[in-house]
Design a protein around this nucleic acid. Structure first.
Lengths: 209, 209
DNA sequence: AAACTGGTTTGATATATGTCAAGAAGCATG
DNA sequence: CATGCTTCTTGACATATATCAAACCAGTTT
């Protein structure tokens, strides 16, 4: 990965609600999030929107555009963020020379497929509170993997955005938060989350219908 | 693609309900469907299942396993089918030599990501009848792309499987079929479908909430 | 042909989530 | 510090879909 420097990596900064790319933009590069976080979303002609993911530092964004050379979704910064631009043709050339890089790239793409299928499971077969529990546990893990607290964190996204991601209305998200708080599973103060009972949240996930 | 023959491609036949691979199987190869069709599904520990896709001739299956070297989902034949086995390490080696193949492989993976995100949109923001309309239109297109009729075809999957794919119960799927039939959009006779009004189905998709 | 089987359709009812509306809390702005 | 603006919470009510149950149908076995 150190050879990636040869790519002549460009770093770019974004403020909250800046677009990293928009749907329809020509595809040139993948982006590695250096710091901060983004959401990706699809817009349907009739105005419907679906948040397809929340990405944080270390994650790669833009894979959807490889298929058509046009970005299929759009990426918006949720806070001040810095990304590294990885020109895709250079990445491909380099990965022809470095099998490890090639394999790494394939794994990243495959991981995205697995992630998406997990969300399909969530959207297709979980009820509202299970979805929120899964969401919180996923965030918790990802914060922990970055050396931050697994139990206390700030949400970077609104109730509306969480709802869009989870296939719920913002009121339903808000009620689920309140319910978890009443059950003493978490403390919520708007965007400040404290998980009081990780195991309890996990258990909530396994209650199938 | 003709050079793919060098891979020493193995063809394998499957009968209806045979497994092409199971969740947990070691990953060795991708599979190109030569004829027939498959479903892929994830099993959740608590018995919940989610069909993540229906694949037909010409489509590539198994991409989810690259990320961990273990198959994350399982693939089941919906009818008598033949697949070509594409050993993944050979595919990677060859794609290091043939940039066109490399690009092709990347596009296939990216297309799968885009497809999954489309399903997220469907599951997250469409109502039952819109989901079914989207499903039928998608099948129609894919049959047409294979030189078959866009308006008359046989479903290879049960109501239950359609429901699992669309995040609905089988009764809801059945009711939606009946409703489309009453609206003179389609003719349904169990698994025999005739689309009477493609534009009407399309219109049904654009009715957002 | 009769009985069986698994999948499908349809009806009656229950329930989770959406919708609408109002108020509260947080955050920027003058 | 007041003002406005957005986001969030909560309540009352509406509705889409799930659930439960029964009947139906097509294909297969006896």
């Amino acid at each position: 990965m150190q050879k990636l420097d040869e790519l002549g990596i460009l770093k770019r900064s974004f403020a909250r609600s800046d677009y990293l790319y928009r749907s329809g933009d020509k595809f040139r590069a993948l982006f590695a999030i250096h710091s901060g976080s983004f959401k990706t979303q699809i817009l349907h002609e009739d105005g419907r929107e679906q948040v397809t993911g929340f990405q944080m530092a270390g994650e790669i964004i833009g894979l959807d555009a490889i298929s058509t050379d046009i970005h299929a979704c759009e990426a918006v910064a949720l806070e001040s963020s810095v990304v590294c631009e990885l020109p895709f043709n250079k990445l491909e050339a380099l990965s022809r020379e470095i099998p490890k890089l090639q394999r790494h790239l394939h794994k990243i793409m495959s991981r995205e497929i697995v992630r998406d299928q997990g969300i399909m499971l969530l959207l297709g077969s979980m009820r509202a509170e299970e979805r929120l529990a899964a969401f919180l546990l996923n965030l918790s893990q990802r914060f922990a993997a970055r050396g931050m607290s697994a139990t206390q964190f700030q949400l970077r996204m609104s109730r509306h955005e969480i709802g869009s991601y989870l296939g719920l209305k913002l009121e339903t998200v808000s009620r689920a938060f309140s319910h978890f708080q009443n059950e003493r599973l978490i403390n919520v103060k708007v965007r400040t989350i404290e998980i009081l009972d990780l195991a309890g949240l996990q258990a909530c996930l396994n209650k199938s219908r």
